[in-house]
């Protein structure tokens, strides 16, 4: 770099914006060239003068500015979209969704007319007792003999079965007493 360095390149040098190799070349040249050194000093002086002038004029932001910002914000009314956006905030959306789910759970059975049908436990005992009367041996795992099967298929129960059926009646009476 035997010739003088351009002012634009010196401006970049002063602002530390040259690539390392370029910066090194300029730096080396400045060590040898008084003219370019003087030019760099002028550029640096301009930067220093700008900073000094800016620092001398620097002031705090007038309190009026902040007051107006807050006034503008606090006097704002939410837009329709803004109101909808409120519903999407987690603090609002989660309880709202929970309430909707619970409401749906309660409301859906009601919408089918009255309370859901319930089956009394006694119903099953009665059914069981009736089955015992009709098939007294079924629950005991007993194998029906052909004679017994024939007797069961017969409309008129034999004396033996009729006697056993009294046990079933007694069972029904006992369950009724418990209830």
């Amino acid at each position: 770099m035997s010739n003088h360095i351009t002012t634009d390149l010196l401006v970049d040098y002063v602002h530390h914006e040259l690539a390392p190799e370029e910066d090194a070349l300029v730096h080396a040249h400045l060590g040898e060239c008084a003219g370019c050194r003087r030019e760099v000093e002028n550029e640096s002086a301009l930067t220093d003068a700008l900073r000094s002038a800016a620092a001398a004029e620097e002031t705090d932001m007038p309190s009026l500015v902040a007051a107006r910002v807050w006034e503008t914000i606090r006097s704002a009314r939410p837009s329709p979209l803004g109101r909808l956006a409120v519903l999407l905030r987690p603090a609002v959306a989660v309880p709202l969704a929970a309430a909707l789910v619970i409401g749906a759970y309660v409301a859906v059975p009601l919408s089918h007319g009255g309370p859901a049908p319930t089956i009394d436990a006694g119903y099953y005992f009665e059914q069981h007792a009736a089955a015992q009367v009709q098939y007294p041996l079924a629950e005991r795992g007993a194998t029906l003999q052909p004679a017994d099967r024939a007797a069961l298929e017969d409309d008129s129960p034999p004396a033996q079965l009729a006697e056993q059926s009294n046990v079933g009646v007694a069972t029904v009476d006992f369950i009724s007493a418990v209830r």
Partner: peptide, 18 residues
């Protein structure tokens, strides 16, 4: 916003002024 104004109000205003 309060923190932004407190910390950067002066710099912002001076930049705007320049």
């Amino acid at each position: 916003l309060e923190r932004a104004i407190q910390q950067y109000g002066k710099a912002t205003y001076n930049f705007a002024y320049r």
